[in-house]
Design a protein around this nucleic acid. Structure first.
Lengths: 205, 205
DNA sequence: TTGACTTGGATAGTCGCACTCGCCAATATT
DNA sequence: AATATTGGCGAGTGCGACTATCCAAGTCAA
């Protein structure tokens, strides 16, 4: 398969494929001469994955590269799988952030603050900050309900990881974490619409 | 308060405040002369809100403008409040998308497909497409668990809407929807880390 | 074999977005 | 009066993700 056919098969412009090659998101084809290379199914699959990560999950080029690198070099520890996915979507926190608001919550929920990633905790603190800056005070009871729901989801996530192959586990964890986020957000919105209709909407329109 | 003091109070550069004024995100101050205007607390609060929407919720300038416009002109119907928030984070779908995958799910979950927004359904379809393009098949049982969790969350969202003032309800719905998303995602990641540690991590490091 | 087409590789250009800068005449402040 | 600040506005910047153009080398149909 040559590059123009690869482009046709994936509906991605040739120029963009060349760009992904330059950026090392896509592995090179087999050179058959100085100006000719062959591509195969692995390139098609990889391109679909790249587009899902960039388009659906909203990752940047460099975050995508990190994720793909991680997928190719699976870490030993099962627990580190998550790190690859989480690191891709979490900006690194400065040294001087105050994590205590997050840690109070983690303690209350029994999530073991010491086992949780610093940057992820900082992301929670940041997000809560955004809320209060906007003048929105989230009652503790509401956060507790959210936390309970998220614990269910995380339990489902972890339970559904296949144990047979490290390769499969890797893919599952990373993709399930990153690509499921938009699914979950869309679900929440639909559930809100459904609930809101039952509560407010029956009467009108 | 003049613009430089407003800038100092919010830690936003004067040039940026001027930009927000141009973009109609921030209402004008009271002109005291041709080259002088006064600002007050309402401007400080508004700027914090703007930064939360742009920074924390990740909205674009124009989406932020829509949201702020909506906050100032509350719709009659309680059910339309959500529309403002959801429209800001959901790109409009082309006419020819096939919503049936979403509708099958909505039916199964009893969420009343006909009461749900087209664009939001399309967002779900898109997100699911991303998953399968990446070669990740989400078992129906897993999606069902996610849906149950999201129904809990949406129920909490809807129940916590204050009923006393339309103004307050408006703020609550819009901000609770938009600014809570990053909170929920951070919670999920932390819950995953906690669950993953209990499942895989006990032994090592 | 020959002439039109394609390719890999590299460089440069585009586009949208969110700012950021510079300037100026008209005030304010001291 | 001297100095600093402001509103308003046009232009510039930096970044990220492409997109376009070239060219020499190679391929393919006739």
């Amino acid at each position: 398969m040559r590059i123009s056919q690869l482009a046709a098969a994936t509906e991605i412009p040739v120029a963009t494929i060349k760009y992904y090659l330059r950026e090392k998101l896509l592995h090179e084809g087999v050179l058959t001469s100085a100006t000719q290379a062959r591509y195969d199914d692995s390139h098609v699959r990889r391109l679909k994955l790249i587009r899902a990560l960039i388009g659906t999950a909203g990752l940047s080029i460099s975050a995508t590269r990190q994720v793909l690198l991680g997928l190719e070099n699976p870490p030993e520890s099962g627990h580190d799988l998550l790190g690859i996915a989480h690191h891709a979507v979490t900006r690194t926190a400065p040294d001087d952030v105050d994590l205590s608001p997050a840690q109070r919550l983690l303690d209350r929920w029994g999530w073991g603050a010491e086992t949780c990633d610093r940057d992820t905790q900082a992301a929670l603190v940041d997000a809560l900050h955004g809320l209060s800056d906007a003048g929105f005070d989230a009652p503790a009871a509401l956060l507790d309900r959210y936390a309970a729901a998220m614990r269910d989801i995380a339990a489902a996530d972890v339970e559904s990881v296949p144990t047979d192959s490290a390769e499969a586990a890797m893919r599952h964890v990373v993709l399930g974490t990153l690509l499921m986020e938009p699914v979950l957000l869309a679900m929440r919105r639909l559930a809100q619409q459904s609930a809101s209709f039952q509560r407010f909407g029956e009467a009108e329109s």
